[in-house]
Structures are given as C-alpha cells and as structure tokens.
C-alpha cells in the first residue's frame, strides 16, 4: 500500500514535470518519435525480408548428381557425409530408375524414347536442404568435393546477390537504429538533467526528511519512461495505418508476386508493442543516466 501510494505520487509528479517543462519535453519526444518511426520501419522491412527469405528457403535446395559408377554402398557414404554438415536439414535420394519412371509418367514420347535406349542415361540424385540459405554456397562447395559426386548446383547467382543485399540492409539498419537510440537517450538524459536541477530544492528537502533514495530517484525514471511512451504514439499510428494502406495498395505482393508481404494483423500490433517498449526503455535508460550523473544522494 505504502509503496503504491509513493508510486502514484511520484507518477503524478513526473507527469506534471513533463508538462511543466513542455518545450523541453517536446524536444525529447520529437527525437524519440523520429527514432521510433525509423525503428518501426526497419522492423517492418526486416520482418518482411525475413518472411521472404523463409519462403525462398523452402524452395532453395542443392541438387546433387552422382557419378555413373556410384554403387549403393558409395551412395550411402555420400549421404552420410552430407548429413554430417552443420547446415544439413534434409535430403532425399532419387535413383536414376525413379527419375526414369517419373519422366515416363509425364510424357508418352519421353517414355518411348527412354524405353528405346538400352542403358539409362539419367543419373542418381540427392536433393539437399540446408538450414540457412546463407550456407548454400559453402555446402554446395563441400558436396562437390565429395568422392563420387558429379555436380552440386543451386541458383547460384541470384541467391548470392539476394543474400548480399539482405546482409547490407540488415547491418545498415542496425547501425542507424543504434545510433538514433543513443542520440535519443542522450537527449532524454539532458531533459531529465534539467528537471533534476529545477527540482534540486525539493530533492534536498526529501533527503533531509528521510525519503528513501529509490523514492527520490523514481520520479525522474518515470518521467523518462513517460517521455519515451509519449514519443511512441505517433510512430504506432504511422505503423498501423501506414502498413495497412501499403499492404492494401499492393494487394499483399511486391514485384509482381515475387515477394509476399506479411499480413498486417500478423505484424502491426506486435511492432507497435515493440516500439512502445523500446520507447519506454530508452526513456528510462536516458533518465537513469542523468540520475546517476547529476543526482548525488
């Protein structure tokens, strides 16, 4: 009860302080707003990229063709070596007979042609799936080096390019967002510093009458939190409406159905929650920095 009373009182004071120093608060809030819009944007983009790569991964496999003279024991060896890879997820062996049967089933002409030949011109194959598409190149290389493997192929060029672009984008957003978060935390810390100075008499009296240190610090931390949460309001609105409008405009697909977008309901609420939490945490982080530095008790 007592703790709650103190908390309510401090919360009220913090809220008052936000509005009393409104011009100052506005600066912090604006900065948080801009940061969080960018954070939200980068989350939405990376989530969609991730979604896209996941889809892509489902389809991307390495096709391994074995040498003509590979017998079943050798084939088992190759399979074992593939399963040994860190990136191994799944493989499927298909013998040349199975290939033949499959091909014959698809067309009668092909069926006749294959029947006419006395040897099967096709090759045994293994289809390999890896855990992460980033491992495709490395894994294909490794498989190519195995004894009895004729070739190992995947959509080399396209995949390498896509992976490279994703990588650069991911790293760039992380760097930008981190930099913005730091700037924001610094600005909030500055706001709180001024609040601390403007309330130093109060702080002195509190210390004098035996207020606990946590209680003295609390309102400043709460104020940082409030600034952060207020700063997340506009980004949340932009995220929610912006993404819905964007999604509807493109009918859920980009680049003529190559990229499928995540459904708004699967994304916007969780992103809103995340940026509100980030706002609050960055606010508290900034204010606790100020409290540590300027509130000597």
């Amino acid at each position: 009860m007592r703790v709650l009373r103190i908390f309510i009182r401090n919360f009220r004071d913090s809220l008052r302080s936000v509005f009393r120093n409104f011009s100052l608060s506005i600066a912090s809030i604006t900065c948080i707003t801009i940061t969080l819009i960018l954070v939200s944007l980068s989350i939405v983009i990376s989530a969609n990229l991730y979604h896209f790569t996941k889809n892509l991964e489902e389809e991307l496999t390495i096709i391994v063709y074995l040498d003509e003279d590979v017998d079943s024991a050798k084939e088992q060896q190759i399979e074992a070596a593939i399963k040994d890879m860190d990136s191994y997820e799944f493989l499927e062996f298909k013998s040349k007979e199975e290939w033949k049967a499959e091909m014959q089933a698809t067309s009668s002409e092909l069926s006749a042609t294959l029947e006419y030949l006395d040897t099967n011109p096709l090759l045994d194959s293994i289809t390999v799936k890896v855990l992460d598409i980033k491992d495709l190149a490395k894994s294909a290389e490794y498989i190519r080096g195995l004894d009895g493997v004729k070739s190992a192929k995947y959509g080399e060029d396209t995949v390498d390019k896509i992976i490279f672009i994703f990588d650069v984008m991911e790293k760039a957003t992380v760097v930008i967002v981190l930099a913005l978060i730091l700037v924001t935390a610094f600005l909030i810390s500055n706001t709180i510093k001024l609040t601390i100075f403007s309330r130093r008499n109060e702080i002195e009296i509190m210390r004098l009458v035996g207020t606990r240190n946590i209680v003295i610090r609390q309102p400043f931390i709460i104020e940082g939190f409030i600034l952060g949460v207020i700063g997340s309001i506009i980004p949340i609105i932009i995220t929610v409406y912006g993404y819905i409008i964007f999604y509807d405009h493109f009918d859920g697909y980009l680049f003529s159905h190559m990229v499928e977008l995540i459904k708004p309901t699967d994304l916007i609420w969780i992103v809103s929650l995340i940026i509100m939490i980030i706002g609050g945490i960055v606010g508290m982080f900034g204010s606790s920095r100020a409290v540590r530095k300027y509130l000597k008790i």
């Binding site: 007592r2 009373r5 103190i6 008499n201 109060e202 009296i205 509190m206 004098l208 009458v209 209680v215």
Partner: peptide
C-alpha cells in the same frame, strides 16, 4: 528557510510525510 515556493504552508509541512508514503 528552504521552503518550496510553489507549495502552500500545509503542503510544505506535509511534503516529507508524503514522500515517505504516509496516508
């Protein structure tokens, strides 16, 4: 005197008790 100028006499005296969480 170190009184808080924005608080009334009553509030100045009550201030400390409030910050220690008294009803």
């Amino acid at each position: 005197f170190k009184l808080l100028p924005k608080l009334s006499v009553y509030e100045n005296v009550a201030f400390g008790l409030e910050t220690i969480g008294m009803k």
